[in-house]
Design a protein around this nucleic acid. Structure first.
Lengths: 152, 152
DNA sequence: GTGACTAGTAACTTGCAAGTTACTACCAAC
DNA sequence: GTTGGTAGTAACTTGCAAGTTACTAGTCAC
């Protein structure tokens, strides 16, 4: 006798709830971020993406590309008309995802054998890391400095 | 007659492929990041989480918590034995996800009314961004500086 | 005109993640 | 001893995201 009020039927974990939920609703599925990751390296054609994102089905790829375009995350530009052929690249909004993806990838690589593609500083060769940066103060900001006012 | 060699059956977009895919395999589902987000605010009990992550079913919550614990992302510590009652909190690995989630949330909030929690620099109040940082040179490194040798 | 290549689209199917609902176990208070 | 709260577990169901497979459309090369 504790029937636990059922959450509003089919409340998608999405809109309105929080910015995070919002973001996840847009790019939180199985393929989207991998796709964006592949596009980070530059414009790609359909077949390139089929290869770069190993395992994705062509209909799903097509679907995702359309959806990403609707969401303004990528732009499709024709590299040939007559047969219309599109090449896909990130929009500014898409490129803004790069930071989050870098952090996520860095987290995913954490603790694993270090032969993952570390990002090295061309000038000196050492492995780089990701830091918060304040454009106004023109300096990096470390976690403890931030944690003081986590909320509000 | 172009039967397009079928990708290896049920290749999960996961392990090995890339650090990003790795990360997504761990936390890339519908609920996990929302859960981690809720735990960012401190230890939480089962019911707290049921409320904080609106819409999650109790069995799913239970499942995710177990899985996150197996993955070392959270730790469950008893706050009462006899009835064993657990409270869940992030491990170090879990806390390392915070950065990525903040950025993701920031991205999700992009373009929407600015009353969303941007990550601000406590000292000066301006919104922060993420940059590559070279620990050896002790400075940030911008994209164009890196792009020269994007591909080896 | 036929074969090959690229870039998709579309029908049909399937598995599993998630939702729903109900139940238990343990304790405390009254 | 019954009511109620907390913390789950479990059976059963369902929808949809994704997989599979096959097809088309347009062009080029020969």
């Amino acid at each position: 006798m504790n029937p636990r009020k059922s959450s509003s039927p089919s409340t998608v974990a999405a809109a309105g709830t929080s910015p995070l939920a919002e973001a996840l609703a847009r790019v939180g599925d199985r393929w989207t971020l991998l796709l964006v990751d592949a596009l980070l390296e530059g414009p790609r054609r359909f077949n390139d993406l089929e290869v770069a994102v190993a395992g994705i089905a062509p209909n799903i790829l097509s679907q995702r590309l359309k959806q990403l375009e609707r969401d303004g995350i990528i732009v499709a530009r024709p590299y040939s008309r007559r047969p219309v052929r599109l090449s896909y690249e990130l929009s500014a909004a898409g490129r803004e995802l790069a930071g989050a993806m870098r952090l996520l990838a860095q987290w995913g690589a954490r603790g694993t054998p270090p032969d993952v593609p570390l990002n090295r500083h061309p000038a000196c060769g050492s492995a780089m890391e990701v830091r918060w940066y304040c454009p106004t103060c023109a300096r990096t900001v470390d976690e403890n400095e931030m944690s003081e006012l986590r909320f509000i």
